[in-house]
Design a protein around this nucleic acid. Structure first.
Lengths: 196, 196
DNA sequence: CGAGATTATCGACACAGTGTCGAATTTAAT
DNA sequence: ATTAAATTCGACACTGTGTCGATAATCTCG
């Protein structure tokens, strides 16, 4: 069942291996896809046998989940610093947020795409990913309020616009035109903010 | 490799089986998920053996692709009739289109969700799904133009808004609040259309 | 140092799921 | 009724995941 974590803490040498496994998985994700990436491949890339990998992670899904968690942590970090920019106009703040997100997709594209694609299959990854989008949406809700929107509407609008941004940048990160896609998203944020 | 279609035309009795297989797959999709749905399950549901299923479809992916194709055909059909509503104001036309799409998600939710979730894995399903979204986006581009938008912008905006609608309704079709989600999307369409 | 515990590694196995083959059975048509 | 095509399925080969127990490396501290 792969539910029993054999190794709870263990601060020994094997921690390097744990990182090596995640690094290999990320590197693999950058040239292949999620599909052909097998436990065998990851283990070999990390210089250990398939069975040994199961000493560090309970299952293949656990590896992917840890990889997503690691990247999402970076995302949340960067996102927090950016959302506090209360000095410029709401539309400008939104544009800055979208541009920052586009940078994330440019730098962490493979893992972020994997998160999107694995969300339907791996509940824990869905939790992580939805949580991140939710936090973004919350931050942007305050921006919409600052722009004069009242009641429940800003929350719902921000949520929808965040999912738009996610989806559009997801596709753009595959085709390469992230810059243009980001501008389009920013424009829709702007229009939503400024319209009556 | 499952690339060789054993049965190209064959207008015999087995056609019923072909439908039965797709119907079973759809029914299965309605209560389980894509993941646990196995060829064994589908075959058993259709009253044949696993090996017999491979007489009708070259692979499991072929079954899913055919199922998506069948549903997408209905979608395109309904979408065409709705996009020709040139009598009302652009924002109203957009709202009507979103509401119609929401109806699709309500009626064909499981298959449409499967299409979204399988797109990254099955290229042919991606082709079908992206094609449908593209046709929607094209139709809505003309609506944006009718609202006064010029140049390349309306195409890019319509595209982004269509993906927003897809994503938001996808999530809503899982949680059940399609009506509210549709109104939120419609509002963003409206604001994008009416904003300066 | 060196015995005992802990950490790490791996070969071999069990299992589930996909797709293939060829032989047997059913159905249709002359 | 005979022949050909359509249909069915058991048995097999293959790939990939996860488990087990035995072995080897590393650490701990008396």
């Amino acid at each position: 069942m792969a539910t029993t974590r054999k190794r709870r803490d263990a601060p020994r040498k094997g921690d390097l291996r744990e990182q090596a496994i995640l690094d290999t998985a990320e590197a693999l994700l950058e040239r292949e896809h999620v599909e052909p990436m097998t436990v065998e491949t990851i283990a070999k890339g990390a210089g250990i046998s398939r069975a040994s990998l199961y000493f560090y992670f309970g299952s293949k899904q656990d590896v992917l989940t840890a990889l997503v968690a690691r990247t999402v942590a970076v995302l949340d970090e960067d996102a927090r610093t950016a959302s506090v920019a209360t000095d410029s106009a709401p539309a400008e703040t939104a544009r800055a947020a979208v541009l920052l997100t586009a940078k994330m997709w440019r730098e962490h594209g493979p893992v972020m795409r994997a998160a999107v694609e694995l969300s339907p299959t791996v509940p824990e990854i869905a939790r992580l990913w939805n949580g991140t989008v939710d936090r973004y949406a919350e931050a942007m809700t305050t921006v919409l309020r600052r722009a004069g929107l009242r009641g429940d509407e800003p929350a719902a609008l921000a949520r929808a616009l965040c999912w738009m941004t996610e989806r559009v940048l997801y596709h753009a990160s595959r085709t390469g035109d992230l810059a243009a896609a980001a501008e389009t998203c920013a424009e829709i944020w702007r229009r939503t903010i400024t319209a009556a």
